[in-house]
Amino acid sequence: MGHVDFVDATRLAAVPIKATRQEATMHFSIFRYNPERDEKPYMQDFHVDLEPTERMLLDAILRIRDFQDDSLTLRKSCREGVCGSDAININGRNGLACITPVRELKEPVELRPLPSFPVIRDLVVDMTQFFKQYHSIKPYLINDEPAPEKERLQSPEDRDKLDGSYECILCACCTSQCPSSWWNPDKFVGPAGLLQAYRFISDSRDRATQERLDDLHDPYRLFRCRTIMNCTEVCPKGLSPSRAIERIRLKMLKVEDDHGGLGIHRVPAIR
C-alpha cells in the first residue's frame, strides 16, 4: 500500500489565511456600453476583494457581475481556455480572461472589448465579419475521391504537419490585434482565417490545395499581411499565424518544404 496524505479540511479551515496580495482589493476599470441606454461608451471603476480561490481574471469579472453590477455583459463558457468565448483586451493586450492570472495584472486592470470589432454591449463584440472570413477559406476537407470503407488514412508524418494549426479555438485575439485586419477587415482574411487556410492546405487528405492557393492569390486576401506578427505574439494558445502565412507564400512559390508542423510557442504573460 502506498502512503497517502489526507488533508484534514477542518484543520485547514481553522488556519487563518495570512494577509497577502490574495486578499488585497483589486482595482478594475471596465469598458461599459449599452446602446439602448448610453450615448457613448465609458470606463467604469470597480474594486473587488478577491477570495483566495479566485485566481483568474474571469473569476474577478464574474464576482463583479454577481455581487456589484449584474448588468455587466460578457461571453464565457468553458472557463478553461478551450472555447475561446471570453477573449477580451486586458491592459491593452488581447487574451482569454479565464486563463489570465488576475493577481499578476497591473492595476487598474483595464478591460475592453476586442479592438476593431463592433461592440454589441460592454465586453461583447459582433464577430460576424470574423466568421465570414473564416468560412471564406472553406474550413473543411475537400476530397471527391470515393470514400474508403472506414476512414481516410494519413501517415503519422503527414498528421504531424497539422500540429500548430488545428489547435486554433477561433477566439479572434489575433485578428482583432492585427493592423492589416483593422484597415481592410472586409477584404483581408486575417490571421485566424489564414491559419485555418494553412491547416487545410497542409492536410495530405485534402485535394483542393491548388484551388485554396489560387483563392488567396490576390492583393488583399493574403498579401495585406505586413508581417507585423501581433497575431503570433497575442495568441493565447501559443500558435503562429504569421508562420502559417509565410508557409502559404512559400507554397505559392512552389518551394518544397518538409518542415513538419508549425510548432507552439510559450505564451507571454499579460501584465
Binding site: H217, D218, P219, Y220, R221, L222, F223, R249, M252, L253
Partner: peptide, 13 residues
C-alpha cells in the same frame, strides 16, 4: 483588382 496587381508578384519583387 486587376490580375497585374497580384499579391504574390508584388511581394516577390
Amino acid at each position: 483588382m486587376r490580375k497585374t496587381f497580384t499579391g504574390l508578384r508584388a511581394w516577390l519583387i
